[in-house]
């Protein structure tokens, strides 16, 4: 009797813990959407802000997030793929690989604000890149690099060994095998990790606080050396700066909706892509 009771209690607890998480997720999404949906319009997406951020759209923030994210992926993607190739295909000497792996794990556990301070010290001040798209993009590139490397390693390790051996036995060199056999097979997996990184880069605030973002700019960015508005920072700034919260808060929720939809779409496509890969390979 007591055993049965404990069993029911235990299962209820386990079931509840996932139900609570799910309820929170839906409540969270519902509240954000219901508070911000009324400001969403075509103009909101395509116009400049007006009257000291209390009216108008968030076009420059969307554009800023776009550019910072593009720059970071552009830098992190090639470095990530080549790193992954080295770790899983060459993998020698072992001590070096161990150091590299530890570095990657440590990087991925470093707080995002520390990346921001690093970017401020090295890119903004040290290399004199100023507060700019480039400084922010570089900072975010290092932040997302571990994710891209790890997904590359994982994807490459899932390539069946026969493929490599078949290619090698046909006289292909190691780099030919990697480029023509391993990478094409691993690419969907690598892309899944990269897409998730895109979502991460687009949503991060702390790393761009001092390296790229500004609350208000009168014009759209013209070069990589311009500081920009960005959606995550815009949400924060609207909630904590300025003098008209009654107008700013709805715009903050509106911006949050745009950012959320963007990221849900990005992560959704990564999840879908991975589902397809698994299905194809049984």
């Amino acid at each position: 009797m007591k055993r049965k009771f404990i069993e029911i209690l235990g299962e209820t607890f386990l079931r509840l813990s996932i139900i609570i998480s799910l309820i929170f997720l839906f409540l969270f999404l519902f509240m954000i959407f219901s508070k911000g949906i009324k400001v969403i319009s075509w103009e909101f997406l395509t116009r400049m802000p007006r009257s000291g951020m209390t009216k108008g759209g968030i076009y420059p923030a969307i554009l800023g997030t776009f550019w910072i994210t593009i720059v970071s992926i552009f830098i992190a993607f090639p470095i990530g793929i080549f790193s992954g190739i080295f770790l899983s295909e060459y993998g020698k000497p072992k001590w070096l690989v161990d150091i590299i792996k530890t570095s990657i794990n440590t990087l991925s556990g470093t707080p995002s604000i520390v990346f921001g301070l690093f970017g401020l010290s090295v890119f903004v001040i040290g290399l004199n890149l100023k507060v700019s798209i480039l400084s922010g993009g570089l900072t975010l590139a290092i932040l997302i690099l571990p994710t891209i490397i790890n997904s590359t390693v994982e994807a490459i390790n899932s390539v069946p060994f026969d493929f490599r051996e078949a290619a090698l036995s046909l006289g292909a060199t190691k780099s030919q095998v990697i480029r023509n056999v391993v990478l094409p097979y691993a690419m969907p997996g690598i892309l899944t990790g990269t897409i998730i990184s895109v979502g991460r880069a687009a949503g991060e605030t702390a790393p761009i606080l001092f390296t790229a973002a500004t609350f208000y700019s009168r014009r759209l960015p013209k070069s990589l050396m311009d500081e920009v508005m960005a959606m995550p920072y815009h949400i924060y700034a609207l909630m904590t700066e300025g003098t008209s919260p009654q107008y700013q808060i709805p715009i903050a929720y509106g911006t949050a909706i745009v950012l959320l939809i963007l990221i849900l779409f990005i992560n959704g496509s990564a999840i879908f892509l991975r589902y397809r890969i698994r299905k194809r390979r049984g």
């Binding site: 998480s21 969270f28 687009a202 949400i235 924060y236 949050a256 849900l264 990005i266 992560n267």
Partner: peptide, 15 residues
Amino acid sequence: FIEILAGIPSVIYGL
């Protein structure tokens, strides 16, 4: 769903 929870930007949790 759990992954979606992981992808939500921290600033929106903050909001």
